[in-house]
Design a protein around this nucleic acid. Structure first.
Length: 573
DNA sequence: GCCGTTTTCGGCCCGACTGTTTTCAGTCG
């Protein structure tokens, strides 16, 4: 898809325009176009061919023309002109906390700074603090910002951040004078990676709460400490730091503040536009008619007044959620009745069948499927046909003597480089449940990842495609998969697509979940657990499913055992 | 640059914090 390149181009145009001091709304429209393209399930090249580009929100005549020019020539005039005006390393300086477009422009024009290295030099030589509007304190902040940027290493995975955030949330809740507190920001929306941790709390004396907050054990640096806002960093590991922001408001504003700081920014803009259309004003303190507050105590009241259902945080992304007439009943962790992808000591897991079953039963599950690796996954101690036959017998024996939870015979069968499966159909037919996944030859091979996946989808014994894109967050890019084709084939063949809940994967991701649901594809939310401890990661998969708009009717492992068996049979027929 | 129950021009979200000012600009979320 050409979309990713366009996203980069439009974001760069926006950055450069900002440094250039252009009109903010024009800059914003480029950012919006970039966002739209990022979220779009369809290839911009296809949309352009069909003349449908302007159907996308935030893409008008001008942007459509620029997309067309890029498709035709690989260039965009506006970008070329801006690139000629500024050195290539300049936009990167915007990533430094404390450096905005004005300061970047200032150091460029006044001190001929072209890159991060140049900036470090003028800090060291004390030239920077002589500039108008800057002083020793600002320069110190910028220097710290550079250090933070080099340490923070981008966004933090949800799976790392959420447990930490919950510890700090509990501490805030325990503070004297705090009536209620909640996580906000991207964490509350269940975004796969987060920039920082946001906490909103309800207390009368903000200053006192903030004072205690910035003194919490583990705080590495205090970035701000005012009467309503505190901002600190904590050490993630030896090299990385993570920022935590706390906002304190009174009870009458708590709902408004929670709404406001949950975002997303784009969702909030849409909400405020709606308020303005009604001649009202919306901010973190409430919804106001003139000076009079008409909502603010509870989040739901804000949405209600604005004529909207109280939208689950996971949907607040300005992806057309404001068009919803009622809030969907999104799938919850409690709706999950079993886990259909887990490993044992037979391949590369660390627990036995009995241990996995006991832990799943403890969670209240009705069933699990044991899915160890197939023979080609040698690195994962994959099972030869002979070992697999023995393993199947073992699973059935354990299932027979285990009360209170059903144990299905499954496997995670490799999709090989040529698109064939790692086990013959006779073996697959013996399994109750078959996950087919790509683990090897992720790069370019004779058969594309799409062709291989489609072949597996069409196999009657394949119940589900495991971690379809193979991505590892911050580590490995997804395979080049034609998701539209995969989703279409899954719908036709009644093959389930997985939402792998491992926080390193989250695969399918939210926008792919939405694509699959739009085509009526059934999804499965599983942990791919290699240890009993990992069964709890189901929460991350559920968050991802919710972000895609999934209800329990869309999820195969929300079915009863009988329903599940029926669903598997329906495909095999 | 986008967009339209304020429709083809003139809007476009809003407040906190900080540092360098001497009333505010820049940054951030």
């Amino acid at each position: 898809m050409v979309n990713a390149e366009l996203v980069r181009a439009f974001e760069r145009i926006a950055d450069l325009l900002e440094i250039d001091g252009a009109d903010g709304f024009r800059i914003n429209s480029y950012r919006r176009a970039a966002r739209t393209l990022k979220d779009a399930g369809e290839d911009a090249a296809v949309l352009a061919k069909e003349g449908r580009l302007q159907e996308l929100p935030g893409i008008g005549k001008g942007t459509a023309q620029r997309i067309q020019q890029f498709l035709d020539s690989g260039h965009i005039d506006v970008l070329d002109e801006l690139e000629a005006k500024f050195p290539p390393g300049l936009p990167g300086l915007l990533d430094i906390p404390g450096m905005g477009p004005k300061k970047v422009a200032l150091v460029h024009t006044q001190l001929a700074v072209k890159s991060l290295d140049d900036l470090k030099k003028v800090i060291a030589s004390c030239e920077l603090e002589k500039l108008p509007g800057l002083g020793a304190t600002s320069v110190k902040k910028i220097a710290e910002g550079i250090a933070f940027l080099e340490r923070s290493g981008g966004r933090t995975p949800l799976g790392i951040a959420l447990p930490i955030a919950e510890v700090f949330l509990d501490r805030v809740r325990a503070l004297c004078g705090v009536k209620q507190a909640e996580l906000a920001g991207s964490l509350r929306r269940g975004v796969e990676t987060i920039g920082d941790i946001d906490i909103v709390c309800d207390a009368a004396d903000g200053e006192m709460v903030i004072k205690q907050f910035v003194a919490f054990e583990g705080v590495k640096r205090v970035l701000a400490a005012g009467a309503t806002k505190g901002s600190v960093t904590i050490e993630l590991d030896a090299e990385k730091e993570l920022q935590i922001d706390l906002r304190v408001v009174g009870s009458d504003s708590y709902g408004a503040a929670l709404q406001y700081f949950t975002g997303s920014k784009e969702h909030n803009v849409r909400l405020r536009e709606r308020a303005i259309a009604k001649k009202w004003r919306l901010n973190e303190y409430g919804l106001f008619d003139g000076e009079k507050s008409i909502a603010g105590k509870r989040e739901a009241d804000i949405y209600k007044k604005l004529g909207l259902p109280c939208l689950p945080p996971e949907l607040r992304e300005d992806r057309r959620e404001l068009e919803l007439i009622e809030a969907p009943e999104l799938v919850t962790v409690e709706d999950i009745r079993g886990d259909l992808h887990m490993h044992t000591v037979a391949s590369d897991g660390r627990c036995t069948i009995e241990e996995m079953a006991a832990a799943a039963k403890e969670r209240g599950y009705e069933y699990i499927a044991i899915c160890d690796h197939s023979k080609s996954s040698t690195i994962a101690n994959g099972l030869s046909v002979k070992r697999m036959v023995e393993h199947m017998e073992k699973i059935r024996a354990v299932a027979k003597k285990t009360k209170g939870i059903a144990i299905l015979v499954g496997c995670e069968c490799d999709i090989l480089a040529n698109g064939s499966l790692d086990y013959p159909d006779e073996i697959l037919a013996e399994c109750d449940w078959v996950v087919a996944s790509i683990h090897s030859a992720l790069g370019s091979t004779k058969h594309s990842p799409t062709e291989r996946t489609l072949a597996a989808i069409e196999n009657p014994y394949v119940s589900m495609i495991g971690h379809p894109t193979g991505r590892l967050l911050n580590k490995r890019a997804p395979m080049e998969l034609d998701m539209a084709a995969v989703v279409e084939a899954a719908a036709i063949n009644r093959t389930i697509l997985e939402i792998n809940s491992s926080w390193q994967r989250l695969d399918l991701k939210d926008i792919h979940v939405r694509m699959a649901l739009d085509r009526g594809v059934t999804l499965g939310i599983n942990t791919d657990a290699h240890h009993t401890d990992q069964l709890s990661q189901i929460r991350f998969g559920v968050l991802t499913a919710r972000r895609g708009g999934a209800t329990k009717a869309d999820i195969v492992n929300c079915l009863s055992l009988a329903g599940l068996r029926k669903r598997i049979e329906r495909k095999r027929l």
